[in-house]
Each structure stands twice: as structure tokens, then as C-alpha cells.
């Protein structure tokens, strides 16, 4: 639990952080809340020569409602997201997910940007951001670009982020009309990470679901949409029964190899849990309609 030596820089602006990244290249890692990177360094699984601490850059913090978009600074902590009335109201699934990350200490230190950039397959926020149709704004030497959440998560601890880019904002559309959402998880009893976690976002008109976006983490190497469920729900009745029947499609389009497997939960069991927790997420969202 003693990391090897490293150099430490504290950046006071995004520009400074980017230039440090440019300077140190692959040898450098960006430090935000430190709740993924530091444990890996202590176990010597990550051995960066340089840490660039962006944790005190104020421009990267905070939650703002901008028209029909919720904009969240990447250094916003899980605790701040969970406590935000705007997030609770406009992106409930994200609020749900942020409130069940780790424990209180982790939520007070860990940040949404660090979480998404780390892309742990079992962390809670990716499914919520994906189901909400979020976007990740990143800035690098070539300037800013926007990456849809659908394109962002690419594999195990792998994202569309370039090595010399930093996340500068997470944007979530708040939707038109009646949008309800929820995130539920089966936490691992040791780590608290999601064995399976499902985020469901439903747009409802009258008694019908007009659009459904459903995504899961924990089950796969990275957060993925559940297309079978989304299709089954589109135009379906906004009822618990319809939700239960749609949840049976959670594994559609996936093969046994797609599911994570470990000593706590085999691929078979995870596939089963995915259906159970999809049903629970859908029903919880519907209860909010």
C-alpha cells in the first residue's frame, strides 16, 4: 500500500492542466477525487511518474440548468450530485446512481468526471449517463469536442477520451413532457460496486411509453444500452406488467460471453440478475410517473 515515487503538479486552470499533460504525455495521470487512481497506485497496479491534480480548478465544479440541458462540472462530487434538487428533478436516475456510489466518504471525494473517465465496468454513473442520453465535453490541445455517451464507453476501463484530453463538462438533456427515470443496483457485498446496475429513462405521454432508454453497468465490460428492452417498451403501456414483460428482453442481443463473470456472480447469474434489476428499475421509474 505504498506507491512508488511520483511528481505532483497542481493545475490552477484547464489550460495549465492541458499543457502539463502535453508536457508529460503517457507518463502522467490526471488526479481528480483520487478514489480510483490512488488505490490503484497504492497497490502498484498503476505507476504514473507524474500526477496532475485538477481537483482545485473551480471552473470545473458545479451544476447548472441551461435551458433543457443539465450541465455538470466534472469535479462535482457524487454527494453534491445526489443532493442537488435540480438533478433529482431533471435527471433522477443520475441522482439515484450518485447516491449509491461507495460510501459517504467516497461520495464526498469522488467526482463524476473522474468516475466516467476511469470507466470501471461496475461503477454506477455510466449507466445513468448513458440512459439519460448524456454528452461528455472534452478539451485537448486541439480544442473542445463533444462525445455522446453512446460513443464514450468503449470497453474495460476504456473510453473515447484521448490521452491528452480532460473532461470539461457532462451534459444531460432534461427531455420534453413527462420524463421519469430511476437507477437500481445489486451491490457487491464487499466492494459496494454494482454486480448489476440498471438505469431506466422513460418518456411518457398519456398512459403510453413513447421512448425508453435503458442501460446497465456491472453486467458487461462497460456500460451498455439494453436495446431489446427499449424496443419492447416503445409505445407500450406505462404499467408494471408491461415493464415486467419488457425486462425479459434485457439480454436480447447479448451472448453468454458478453457477461462479466467472477467468483461472486457467474455470467449466467448476471444475465438473470440483469432481467430482475431491469424490471425493478423500470417499475421504480414508473412509480415516479
Amino acid at each position: 500500500m505504498y506507491p512508488p515515487k511520483f511528481d505532483y503538479y497542481r493545475a490552477s486552470s484547464v489550460d495549465e492542466a492541458l499543457s502539463l499533460l502535453q508536457q508529460h504525455g503517457a507518463n502522467a495521470k490526471v488526479l481528480a477525487g483520487g478514489h480510483s487512481l490512488i488505490p490503484m497506485m497504492k497497490m502498484r497496479l498503476a505507476q504514473p511518474g507524474v500526477l496532475i491534480d485538477i481537483g482545485r480548478i473551480d471552473e470545473l465544479k458545479g451544476i447548472r440548468v441551461e435551458g433543457d440541458t443539465l450541465s455538470i462540472g466534472p469535479l462535482t462530487t457524487h454527494a453534491a450530485i445526489a443532493a442537488s434538487e435540480d438533478v433529482q428533478r431533471l435527471a433522477t436516475a443520475l441522482s439515484d446512481a450518485a447516491s449509491v456510489v461507495g460510501d459517504l466518504q467516497v461520495r464526498n471525494r469522488g467526482t463524476i468526471g473522474g468516475n466516467l473517465a476511469h470507466a470501471d465496468p461496475a461503477s454506477d454513473l455510466p449507466a445513468a449517463v448513458l440512459a439519460l442520453g448524456g454528452e461528455i465535453e472534452a478539451r485537448g490541445p486541439a480544442g473542445s469536442r463533444t462525445i455522446a455517451a453512446d460513443d464514450f464507453f468503449q470497453g474495460l476501463f476504456t473510453t473515447a477520451l484521448d490521452e491528452n484530453e480532460i473532461i470539461t463538462a457532462i451534459r444531460v438533456p432534461t427531455g420534453q413532457g413527462t420524463r421519469v427515470s430511476a437507477y437500481v443496483k445489486f451491490p457487491h457485498p464487499a466492494s459496494g460496486y454494482a454486480v448489476v446496475g440498471v438505469a431506466a429513462v422513460l418518456d411518457i405521454a398519456g398512459n403510453k411509453v413513447t421512448t425508453a432508454r435503458v442501460a446497465a453497468n456491472g453486467a458487461f465490460e462497460c456500460a451498455k444500452r439494453l436495446a431489446g428492452v427499449e424496443q419492447a417498451l416503445s409505445g407500450a403501456d406505462a404499467t408494471a406488467e408491461a415493464a415486467a414483460s419488457a425486462a425479459e428482453h434485457a439480454t436480447d442481443g447479448f451472448s453468454a460471453d458478453d457477461f462479466m463473470s467472477d467468483i461472486f456472480a457467474s455470467a449466467d447469474y448476471r444475465a438473470h440478475l440483469l432481467k430482475v434489476y431491469t424490471r425493478r428499475a423500470l417499475q421504480k421509474a414508473l412509480e415516479r410517473a
Partner: peptide, 13 residues
């Protein structure tokens, strides 16, 4: 030892 840390070995909370 597969359960080498508290990430894998669950003590009751």
C-alpha cells in the same frame, strides 16, 4: 488467493 483484498472478501457491514 482470489479474495486477496476487501474488494472481494465481504465482511458484514
Amino acid at each position: 488467493l482470489v479474495t486477496g483484498t476487501l474488494l472481494d472478501y465481504a465482511v458484514p457491514k
